[in-house]
Design a protein around this nucleic acid. Structure first.
Length: 434
RNA sequence: GUCCCCAUCGUCUAGCCUGGUCUAGGACAAAAGCUUUUCAAGCUUUCGACACCGGUUCAAAUCCGGUUGGGGACGCCA
């Protein structure tokens, strides 16, 4: 059975690159009915923080990667020491004393040519004569990354090591350790790195890196996963939007690209919109409610959920990120609309008192204030006045929503309700004018 | 500096392994149009790439070598 692992170090948040590594590991496990193991590499006690562990676990769950087993390296120090002693006894390592008299265990590197077969890259050759002797156990008694990693991967029966390209140079070091310990080698697959837009590594300065940031911005986890999946792998047949279940069926680690990919926010936005359009409005409503509460648009304990669902349906196809909803639909929740000055200048500079008044009178007479009736009465009015529909539509939209863009006007009126619609139009009817 | 990895439209990629079907396909972005009540969506169209040089071959995006460019690693960090 295939066993893979994702081994984050809790010295920071889960970032885009880590999430993609986790995804490909998880995908490989799922596609072969194997196990996905999580190993927290918290050997650096001073830099590791429990907040980060919580954050990483949360993000992985949010993305939908469930792990079958979880381990913490900080609880396994005795094991590493034991194995280091074994290497030492066999004469493959030596002790080095620091000035303070503390002892470290150092592995003796034997110069040799070595060749590995990487599942993604194919053959890679190394000459270990350029590698220095490697520390196994530091003078403070904790193991080094390469050593703990090898011991754990072997003990946890990891069959495939899928990790970032930046670990290629660690591979020969680790292979020497496997050999020294007499442990069987796993398979290796090194994923290409994700680069920032302008080139170079992803960093805070070059856009969002942490998964939580994307979550906060209102990206859907399925969309983010879909996007990440497409960075370095293609499901074939020119498919872009792909269900995770289908992806599992089609995934093959050997068909992953060798080339580094640049993070393209535009494409992420497009994918997110695709998912938003097709997502169940009820689920989107669940996600949107906390935002509305936070903005005080709705009262936590007393609001009309069905109403929010209706509004979500109105906007879900036209927003790119969930957070857009609160901004775009604000006028449905506010008592008074905030009118965009430019929009006012463009559409409400002229006096439309007469037209607005006539329309208000018509709306008053409507029995059902539904979309079809509203539209019918509006169409009648413009026919009577002998003007183009858009001559009135744009000003009315600005008066009702404060914006020049938004959902269909008659839908807006319907969900705004007769009273609020009338009120907002009335504001632009000058006193004395009829 | 040393070692390693990589190289198809601006970006993500298909094709490369198993040369000919590639006047290189799709998607995002951009531009134009249709639709229309604005925006979004949708539909149609346009723009746009095999880094370079050499070799192998009847034939190379595909195989080989080099150059250039990009990325990564060289910690008692992970």
């Amino acid at each position: 059975m295939i066993r893979v692992r994702f081994a984050p170090s809790p010295t920071g948040n889960l970032h885009i690159g880590g999430a993609r590594t986790a995804l490909f590991n998880w995908l490989l496990a799922q596609s072969k009915a194997g196990k996905f193991i999580l190993r927290i590499e918290d050997t650096d006690v001073s830099r590791s923080k429990t907040e980060y562990i919580d954050e990483i676990l949360n993000s992985l769950e949010w993305l939908g990667f469930k792990w079958d087993e979880i381990y913490y390296q900080s609880k396994r120090f005795d094991i590493y020491k034991e194995y280091a002693q074994k290497v030492l006894k066999e004469g493959k390592a030596y002790i080095e004393k620091s000035e303070a008299g503390k002892e470290a265990i150092i592995f003796k590197v034997i110069p040799q040519k070595m060749k590995i077969v990487d599942l993604i890259h194919g053959e890679i050759e190394f000459d270990t004569s350029v590698i220095k002797d490697q520390v196994l156990i530091k003078s403070d008694g904790t193991p080094t990354y390469n050593f703990a990693c090898v011991v754990d991967d072997a003990l946890m029966n990891i069959t495939h090591i899928v990790r970032g390209d930046d670990h290629i140079s660690n591979t020969p070091k680790q292979i020497m350790l496997y050999e020294a310990l007499g442990l069987p080698l796993p398979e290796f697959a090194h994923l290409p790195l994700i680069l920032a837009k302008g080139g170079g590594r992803m960093s805070k300065r070059k856009g969002a890196t942490a998964i939580t940031e994307y979550r906060q911005m209102g990206y859907l986890p399925q969309a983010l996963v879909n996007f990440l999946m497409l960075l370095g792998w293609a499901p074939g047949e020119n498919r872009e939007i792909i269900d995770i279940k289908d992806a599992i069926k089609l995934f093959d680690i050997k068909s992953v690209n060798k080339t580094a990919a640049v993070m393209d926010m535009d494409k992420l936005d497009w994918i997110n919109n695709q998912y938003l359009k097709n997502e169940d409005p009820q689920k989107l409503t669940d996600a949107v409610i906390p935002m509305l509460i936070e903005k005080k648009y709705i009262d936590k304990d007393n609001f009309d959920r069905d109403y929010v669902v209706s509004l979500v349906k109105l906007f879900q196809a036209r927003i790119t990120v969930l957070n857009d909803f609160a901004d775009w639909a604000d006028f449905f929740f506010m008592k008074d609309v905030t009118i965009d000055p430019e929009a006012q200048q463009k559409y409400l500079a002229q006096d439309l008192s007469k037209e607005f008044k006539l329309f208000i009178d018509r709306l008053d007479k409507l029995e059902k204030f539904d979309i079809a009736e509203i539209e019918a009465s509006f169409r009648e009015l413009v026919a009577e006045l002998n003007i183009q529909a858009k001559v009135l539509i744009h000003p009315i939209r600005v008066a009702l929503t404060g914006k020049t863009v938004g959902p269909g006007l008659f839908e807006v009126m319907h969900y705004l309700g007769k009273e609020r619609t009338k009120e907002r139009l009335m504001k632009w009817v000058k006193k004395g004018g009829s």
